[in-house]
Amino acid sequence: MPKLTLEIVVNGTPTQVESNPEAPLLTVVPIALQQTNNVGQPPDNWELRDSSGNLLDLHAKIESFGFGAGVRLFLNLKAGIGG
């Protein structure tokens, strides 16, 4: 199956990530973080949303989302513990 290029916007900074459609979405997170030098927090502390703001299941296969060419996703650091 051909690779799918995803544009992932990490805390506002876009980067292109090549993905394997049969792999879980989780696999693109560390790559996007590394490419944007966001190495201070583990991938678990991030959440990925589509352009409508819907939270995406990182354990689902990439092909299951039906992303088209030029899809743009948004990866942001979670709130962490407040108080």
Partner: peptide, 15 residues
């Protein structure tokens, strides 16, 4: 937190 992007505009808006 400075190097994690915690203070970036889009991240704070997202929260």
């Amino acid at each position: 937190h400075r190097k994690t992007g915690a203070g970036r505009l889009v991240r704070l808006l997202e929260v």
